[in-house]
Design a protein around this nucleic acid. Structure first.
Lengths: 240, 240
DNA sequence: CGGTCCGTTGAGTTTAATCAAGAAACGTGG
DNA sequence: CCACGTTTCTTGATTAAACTCAACGGACCG
C-alpha cells in the first residue's frame, strides 16, 4: 500500500532505505477519522504532528463575529506544522473534510526522527517551504485578485497538488468541498461563489459535477487565474 | 552592540555561549543597504539566507496586471525562509523598506550551523512557525475582516512585534510605511487606506504622525481589530 | 417520506474602487 | 538654504464589485 507522505517527501530530496523504514514505522499507527471531525481546536495545547495519509483536511479559524476563514487545505501526504507541539497554544483548528486516514507522530518521536535522519529533516523543511509559498499565494489572491480570478487560482492550485499525488482520474479529480467551504476559503459568500462558478461553467473553463472537478479548458483557467505554478516549487534545484 | 537576530532567537529557546558565538560569527558580515533596494527578485535563483539586523524589509509580489501585494514585513531580527536556497526559483521578491543592516548567510554555512547547533536549529524552526502564524493571520484578515478591522489588526501586529524587540519609545514607534505600502499589504487602495486612517484618528484610537505610529487607545484598537495575540505565540510552552 | 443542508436565482444595499484634482511633504541640485 | 520637481496625502463625486436578504428547488439521509 502506497504511503502518500513518504511519496511526497521523496519528491523533496533523496531518502535512503533506512529513512523510509523509519517513516513507515512512525506512520503505521494511522487511524480512520470521519468527515468533519476536529483533530485539534484553537486554544488547545498543541498535540502530536498530524499527517494526512488519505483524505482531505483543512485548517480554519472562527472569528468573534462567527464567520469562518479556511486557511489551508491538507491533501494526502500533507503534514501539519513541524514542531507545532513546541508552542503554547493552537492559533487555529484543524478538521477533516472527508473521511481520512490520519497518522499522529508524538513530539518526542518527531524530534528524534529529525535528529537522526538528516534526509528526512531536509525533505520536511522543503515541504514546509512549499506550504509557506502556498500561504503567500493565498494572501496574494485575497489581496489583489477578483473573485473569478481567485476561484480559478484555487482550482489551479488544487488541480496541480492533486495531480502530483496521483489523484487525477481522466476528466478531473474529486473535490470534496461544498460551495460554503469554498466561500470560507476564498473570503467570499456562498452566494457569490455560486455565481462565479456559474460564470466559469458558461465560459466552458471548468465545472463541478457531483463532487468532481472537471477542467474543460486548463489554459483558459490558468489564464483567468494568472496562475504561476512556480510558487509551488515544481522544479527543485539540483542539490550537490 | 546588540544583535536583534540573536536576541530574537533567545526568545525561542535556550542558547549556549557557543551557539551565540556561532551566530555572531555568521552575522558579522552585515552590510548597509539603502531604502527600497531589492535584495532578491522573483524568478531569481535563491541566494543566501537574509537576516535583517536593523531596519525594515518586505516580501512582495507583482501581479501580471501590475498591482503589487506585500506578503510580509521583516523587522529587525527577522530572517527570510530557512533553506530558501534549496528551491529552484524565488516566488516573490524581497526589498528593504528603509535603510537597513542586512547579514547574509550562505547556504552551506547555514546547513552547517543547523547541523551542529541543535539549539539554533530549534529556535529557528520556532521562529519560522510564528512567521507562518502571521501569514495565516493575514489570510484571515484579508478574507473575513472589514477594511478598518484589517488596518487595526495590522497595527496591533506591528506594535506587538516592535515592542518585543524594544522598538517602542514612549508614545509609539517608528512606522516607515507609506499609505501606498499599507494599501499593498492590506489589499486595498491608497485612497481607501487614507479614509480608514482618518476614521481611526477621529475615533482617537490611533494616528500616524510623520512616520511615527501613535496608539492613543490600545484597548479600542485591539477591539476594533478583533486582535488575538495568541497567534504570535507570546507564551512559549515550558520545554523540558 | 419528511427534514435538513446545499445549490440556485433575483432584487436591493453596502463597501470599497475608480477618477479627478489640489495640498502638503520630501528630496535633490543649484 | 532655497527652488523645483516628485511623491504622497487628502478630499469629493461617481461607479463597480460583492454582500445581504429572501425564496425556492433539489439532493441526500435517516
Amino acid at each position: 500500500m502506497s504511503n502518500h507522505f513518504i511519496q511526497k517527501l521523496k519528491g523533496f530530496g533523496p531518502l535512503a532505505d533506512e529513512d523510509i523504514v523509519a517513516l513507515e514505522n512512525v506512520t503505521k499507527s494511522a487511524r480512520k477519522v470521519a468527515a468533519r471531525t476536529d483533530l485539534i481546536r484553537e486554544g488547545d495545547r498543541p498535540g502530536p504532528l498530524f499527517v494526512v495519509l488519505d483524505g482531505w483536511a483543512q485548517r480554519y479559524k472562527i472569528l468573534p463575529n462567527g464567520t469562518r476563514q479556511i486557511v489551508a487545505f491538507l491533501l494526502p501526504g500533507d503534514a501539519c506544522d513541524l514542531h507545532v507541539g513546541t508552542l503554547a497554544e493552537m492559533d487555529h483548528s484543524i478538521q477533516t473534510v472527508k473521511a481520512a486516514r490520519i497518522a499522529t507522530i508524538a513530539n518526542g518521536v518527531l524530534d528524534d526522527l529529525m535528529d537522526r535522519h538528516r534526509n528526512i529533516r531536509r525533505a520536511m523543511y522543503r515541504a514546509q517551504l512549499t506550504d509557506e509559498g502556498t500561504l503567500r499565494a493565498w494572501i496574494v489572491s485575497m489581496g489583489r485578485r477578483t473573485s473569478i480570478e481567485r476561484v480559478a487560482h484555487l482550482m489551479c492550485e488544487l488541480y496541480l497538488r492533486a495531480s502530483r499525488i496521483g489523484l487525477i482520474d481522466g476528466e478531473g479529480f474529486e473535490l470534496p468541498l461544498s460551495q460554503i467551504m469554498l466561500a470560507d476559503a476564498l473570503g467570499m459568500t456562498p452566494v457569490h461563489i455560486n455565481r462565479v462558478l456559474k460564470d466559469l461553467r458558461s465560459r466552458a473553463a471548468m465545472e463541478i459535477r457531483r463532487g468532481t472537478m472537471v477542467i474543460q479548458d486548463p489554459v483558459m483557467l490558468a489564464q483567468i487565474a494568472g496562475f504561476d505554478e512556480n510558487y509551488l516549487h515544481r522544479r527543485l534545484r539540483q542539490i550537490a
